[in-house]
Each structure stands twice: as C-alpha cells, then as structure tokens.
Design a binder for these strands. Structure first.
Ligand SMILES: [Mn+2]
Ligand SMILES: [Mn+2]
Ligand SMILES: [Mn+2]
Ligand SMILES: [Mn+2]
Lengths: 219, 219
DNA sequence: ACAATATTTTAGTCTTATCTAAAATTTAAT
DNA sequence: ATTAAATTTTAGATAAGACTAAAATATTGT
C-alpha cells in the first residue's frame, strides 16, 4: 500500500506517458522522462510488475494495471492539491510550485490530503489548469482545445497550459496571459502557424509553439 | 548543504540527546533513539564527521559541530512550523501531528518555509509548547518549570509538554489540560509525588509521572 | 589488579536503486 | 530476405544505509 519515492515517480511517469502512447509505454520513453538509463527502467518495471502495478512483457513496453493507475492518480492528486496550496495560500507564483510539489506529493497521509482538500475548498483544477482527481481517482473532464486549433475570429478563455516549465509560464506572464484570460484569434499565418491574438484589449503576436501549449475553452 | 533523510534524522536525534547528555552523546543512546543498531550508528556518525557535522572520536561519543547544530535547528524549525500548520490551519488535534511533521520536516525549500512562517503569523511556539527556532537557529528561551517542581498552593499556566506521545496528549485531554490551561497545586503527596490540582474550576488527581511531563509558567 | 560485563567498532552481508558494457531482440533499410 | 541500426534486457559493479557476528575497547565489581 505504501510505495517508495522511486516507485511512485515511475508510476507517475508511466501514467503520463500512457496518455500519449498508443501502445505499451517504451522503456526508453520512461528512461528519458525519468532522466535515468533504460537498464534501470527495466529493473524497476520488473519490480512494479511483481507488485501488480504494471503489466510487463519483455520487449513490449508496460501499461499500468488498475491498481497502478489508481496509485498514480493519488500521487497526481497530491501534487496538484499542494500546488493549489502553494499558490492560493502561500502566494507562490505559478512557475515556482512544481519542484516543491514534486517533494510534497510523496508525503504519506490520507488524513492530511483529505483535510488539505477541504482547507483549499475542494478545488477542481491546479494553478496550471490541470484537473485534480478526487479521492477515488476520478477526473472531471472538460472541453478544451489547443489555441493552435482555433480559426481566425474564434475566441475563448485560457483554461490551462500543456507544458508548464517555469520558462514558458514566465513568458506567458510577459504576454499577460494566465488562467482565465480572454483570448481571440485575430489572424493566423499558414506559413508558420504563428498568430496575432487579442489578449484582453491588447494585440499580441505568438508563435505556433506557444499556441500549441495553451488550452482554451471556446465560447 | 542538502542532506539525506537519514542524515537529517541522525542530526536531529543527536541534537536532542546532546541537551540531556553532559558528555558526548553515546552510540547506544543514538541507536535507541533512532530505533536502529549501534553498528549502524557508528557508520553514520563517521559519515557525518566527514561532512563536518559532528565531532567524533572513537569510543568517546559525538557532539554536534556548529554546522551540525545549525542544520539540526533548521529541521526542528521546519518540524514545528508544519505542526502549527497542521493544527491551526487543518484543524488536526495536537496528538495527530507529529508523525506527519516527521515527513514534512524533510522537504527542501527555504522559500517554502519562509512563506509558511509568514502565513502562520511567525509563531514562537508549536502546538506542544516547544519553541520554534528562527531562520538563524535562535530559540526564544522562556521561564518554565515542571509542574512536579511546584509546591502546594503555587499555580501557573500550562505552557508545554515534555513528552508528547499521542497517549500522553490524549490523557491530558481527558484531564481537560492543554496549552494555556490554568493549574494550581492544591496538594502534593510526599510518598509518591502525586498531586491534587485545580484545573480551571475542577479538582483533579495526577501522578508524579504526569506532573514531570507538564511545563508551567508560574505567576 | 584483574576478571566480568557493557559498550563500541570492525568485518562482512543484504537490499534498493543506480550505472556501464555486453548480449539479445526488435525494427528499419536496402 | 538479409543486413544494419535501434531498442531492450542481462550481467556485473557501485553507493547508501541497514543488519549480524565477532573483535576491540572501556567500565564495573570484587
Ligand atoms: Mn506540477
Ligand atoms: Mn500543475
Ligand atoms: Mn513533533
Ligand atoms: Mn511538537
């Protein structure tokens, strides 16, 4: 029931990779995500398989079992709740909280998380717009599109970021874009996918890469 | 500058033992406190000595260096601040917070602790009445006596507990004693050190052992 | 003073989580 | 269909932290 820091981090990594991989998650992919070597991944994956947290067939990659998925989701729940705490209560900026939450997510105490959740007002989303699983691992799914998928004259509200590195978040600050910001596409360049957008009352130019990392809810 | 969980726990243990030991802290004493074996202690103490955190001479026990003492105090500061958070903000009871704080004290982030401290109103004492070191490791010393040292008809306010196991704290709850409770010694039995005391408006009987674990500030 | 006892250290082993180098397997290219 | 290249696994090594059993040192009792 209680897993090591390392095991928990592997489960989280596999969970995130599973969302984008069609087939089983590759050893190399996990190694890259975890900043470790493929041989280390093989070792750990065997151990997780022993504990019935992943399905593993040699050379075929891994998938999470139901147990593994549930476990990953509780860690993600903790991570995101702590991020809300750091931003809402301690006034951290949204680009400063991820590293600290990486540590806090490994604190073992159901009671703590239950009380923290209440203290924070049972939030549905973390500071980056990512959904917070409930205690049973259920995630509230919402309609959201990448800004890059909007056409000219379409508009919406920024509801999340796909990538949430400090660099990107700080760049968004410079552009006056944050969760809740109203955005409208004024122009879209077919050549490079760059856009001219309306941010509040001001016009702004953003690259395709930026547009591909911003989630909006259309109206 | 950043130490492992194990190293931090040893430093903390040595710090607490040094306060009561006249001479260097004995290997056996550390082993008992840490619930580990003396041979493991010897190994760790050598490592801490390498890192200039303790002074160690074979067969002579250990003492903390200035660096080691400062490090121990920052961990204790974190532990106690988190305990305040758990009680004041998450409404945990004072007998439930120690185990969780044992985990939280190892989160590495100066900024986090600085902000947590402000968020909590820069408290001077934790839920058990223990002083919270400031960021430089300075502890606010206060006048306090063990209840067992008071004479008949002397009174005071409960300002802390010496032992803070859940069992003892729950027993104090039953006796309606907590931090801030006014206590007066009505009678003291020389035979076994037991006392009849006034707790608020009610009379109560307590053993010597209990009286020896309650700190009061006399008035 | 000297034997008996207690404490502490050393030597060697174990587990977890890593790594490198080499072998096995799969996938891609001709 | 072979060969070349990429991926994955195995084998063996290392480091941290813990343990047991045995040796070394210190303390105590007579
Ligand atoms: Mn994060
Ligand atoms: Mn987040
Ligand atoms: Mn405590
Ligand atoms: Mn305390």
């Amino acid at each position: 029931m209680k897993y090591s820091l390392s095991e928990e981090n592997y489960l989280k990594a596999i969970y995130h990779l599973e969302k984008i991989a069609a087939t089983g998650v590759a050893t190399n992919a996990i190694a890259e995500q975890m900043e470790t070597k493929p041989s280390s991944v093989t070792d750990m994956v065997k151990k997780l398989s022993e504990k019935d947290l992943v399905n593993y067939i040699k050379y075929q990659g891994v998938t999470l079992t139901e147990k593994g998925r549930k476990t990953a989701l509780t860690i993600i729940r903790k991570h995101r709740l702590w991020e809300v705490f750091l931003v809402d209560k301690l006034n951290f900026h949204w680009d400063q909280v991820h590293e600290i939450a990486e540590q806090l997510e490994h604190i073992h105490s159901e009671e703590l998380i239950s009380r923290l959740d209440k203290f924070l007002g049972e939030p549905d989303f973390d500071p980056h717009g990512d959904p917070i699983p409930d205690k049973h691992g259920n995630i509230k799914r919402t309609e959201k599109k990448l800004l890059s998928d909007l056409d000219k004259n379409q508009g919406g509200v920024c509801v999340g970021v796909k990538e949430s590195s400090a660099e990107f978040l700080q760049y968004l600050d410079k552009k006056k874009i944050t969760i809740g910001t109203k955005i409208k596409v004024l122009g879209k360049e077919f050549f490079d996918g760059s856009m001219v957008i309306l941010v509040g009352k001001d016009q702004s130019f953003i690259s395709k890469k930026t547009a591909e990392n911003l989630y909006v809810q259309t109206n």
